[in-house]
Structures are given as structure tokens and as C-alpha cells.
Nucleic acid binder design. Structure first.
Length: 261
DNA sequence: AGCCAGGCTGACG
DNA sequence: CGTCAGCATGGC
């Protein structure tokens, strides 16, 4: 992730899970091609969110000291624009898992069922498409990827996408409508839906609430309650780019930069 | 060894 | 509408 200041890389960003470290950089198969963190083509610029003025995001945090703190702790942080299908599959696998294991599951899924690419004599694997995943036997998927009960979520959601569920339109829909649509997929609840919308559909006001963000919402704003409640309160408190701030909050909390008591 | 992890589903009230 | 047990797996 460009200008990451050594604090956060594409390996442990927890936004994306299949990037590999290569000589002086990072490499992954993305959307049917090989991409590196030094690519400057249009697709790569979009993926890395190059066009956004992150200084302006930080400026809009003034008056909210907590948000300002989190943003300043993570200079160079980006929120990626991944293909929504890739974000969907990765975050279905993410549920009730830790970041390291999510990475191993995603890598295993891609290696078992995705397309293989060779780049500088190393092999990389992309996400399998819906047309592939929808035909994989659930027990075989569970056994080979070791994703447990999430195997059926992957296959069912892949079948819905294959049958015509439109992921691309989620980018155009208003946030609430997009959430409702995404929740129709298997393995997608309120938290995973907001991850897909934030990381894959350019909804920068989506606000994923996991255990770390929940803890921070309580410590900072004395807010407790359901994922839906906390997410809506965060939108009120932090504004229309709360998702970008969420990413800083998440990392600051998860990596121990902020004392949670 | 036992709790925890970028939670969801289905049942039940 | 909200609540909650059960769930596969492995990191720590």
C-alpha cells in the first residue's frame, strides 16, 4: 500500500488477504491480471485509491480528536477499491476468524480453484470466478480449503451471482439499499456487507463493526449496542467518510496502538 | 488447554 | 423487530 510508512503492508492490511511480498514490493493476481504495488496503470490507480486526497480526509477530522488520533497514527493508510466479487469472497471467509487464518483460507481457495499466473518465476493465484465456485461440492470445498461451515456460504453466494445477482450495481445504489441487497447473499450479515461495500463498492460511508471497532466505540464515544446501531452512530459522529476513519480505528485498536483497558 | 477471532444462520419470542 | 445457541478451524 503506497506510502505505508512501515506500519501496515498489503500482507497484514486486513482489507485484502492474497498479496505476497516480492523483491522490493508486493504482488498479487487481481481481476484476471498480475498487479504490483508499483503499477501505475489506471486499474492499479483505482485499486490503490490514488485519486483520493487523504490529507483532506484528515482535515475533516478536526474537531473529532479521537478520529484525528487514529488517522495520525496510520500515515499513508489507504482504503482499497477491490473488485467487489473478490471482496465478497474474502469477507465471507473472514467471519469469526482471525486475520492470519483468513489469509491462509483465501490463499488456499485461490490456489485450489483460481487461475495460476507466473510472474518473475513465482506463482500467483487469482480468485476463482462465480461460474467455477458455484459448481464445487460443498464438502470438497470445506475439506480442501479448510473453511468449515463457510464452504456452503461461498457456494450458495456463487450460485446466486451465477444466476444473475448483480454485484456491480451495488456501487450505484444508496448505502442502505446496497446493504439490503448484499444481505440476501449467503454468509453476508451486517458486518461483512459493510466490508464489501467499503472495500469493494466505493461506499466510503460504510462502517464495518467488528470486535475491535466495537471496543473502540465504547471507549471513545461510550456507545454500545448492536452492529447496526453502532454503525449508524459512527456515521452521525464521524461523517460521510466514516469508513475511511474506521480503517484507521480498526488498525489502531487491533495492533495495540490504542489502549483499550 | 482454553479462549478468541474483521460473524452468520436459523429458531424462537 | 431483537436475542441467542451453535458453529469449523487454528492462532496464541
Amino acid at each position: 500500500m503506497r506510502n505505508i510508512d512501515g506500519k501496515l503492508t498489503l500482507i497484514d492490511s486486513a482489507q485484502v488477504f492474497h498479496w505476497e511480498e516480492t523483491e522490493n514490493g508486493y504482488t498479487a493476481a487481481v481481476n484476471g491480471r498480475i498487479m504490483t504495488d508499483r503499477d501505475e496503470d489506471e486499474e492499479a490507480q483505482t485499486y490503490f485509491d490514488d485519486q483520493r486526497d487523504y490529507n483532506a480526509v484528515a482535515d475533516r477530522c478536526r474537531g473529532i480528536p479521537e478520529a484525528e488520533t487514529a488517522i495520525k497514527m496510520l500515515p499513508g493508510l489507504r482504503v482499497l477499491n477491490q473488485p467487489c466479487w473478490e471482496a465478497l469472497i474474502a469477507f465471507i471467509l473472514s467471519s469469526n476468524n482471525n486475520v492470519k487464518r483468513i489469509r491462509s483460507l483465501v490463499l488456499s481457495l485461490c490456489k485450489n480453484y483460481g487461475d495460476r499466473y507466473t510472474y518473475r518465476s513465482r506463482e500467483f493465484y487469482g480468485f476463482p470466478g462465480a461460474e467455477t465456485l458455484c459448481e464445487v461440492p460443498i464438502d470438497e470445498l470445506a475439506q480442501r480449503v479448510k473453511c468449515g461451515y463457510r464452504a456452503q456460504y461461498l457456494v450458495k453466494s456463487a450460485q446466486m451471482v451465477k444466476q444473475g445477482f448483480d454485484l456491480e450495481i451495488l456501487k450505484e445504489l444508496p448505502l442502505e439499499k446496497a446493504r439490503t441487497e448484499l444481505a440476501k447473499l449467503s454468509g453476508v450479515g451486517p458486518k461483512v456487507a459493510d466490508c464489501v461495500l467499503l472495500f469493494g463498492c466505493r461506499h466510503s460511508d460504510a462502517f464495518p463493526v467488528d470486535i475491535w471497532v466495537k471496543r473502540l466505540m465504547e471507549k471513545w464515544f461510550h456507545e454500545t449496542g448492536s452492529v447496526q446501531y453502532l454503525r449508524d452512530r459512527a456515521r452521525q459522529i464521524l461523517g460521510s467518510e466514516c469508513g475511511l476513519i474506521q480503517q484507521a480505528m480498526f488498525h489502531a485498536a487491533r495492533t495495540g496502538m490504542i489502549d483499550l483497558e
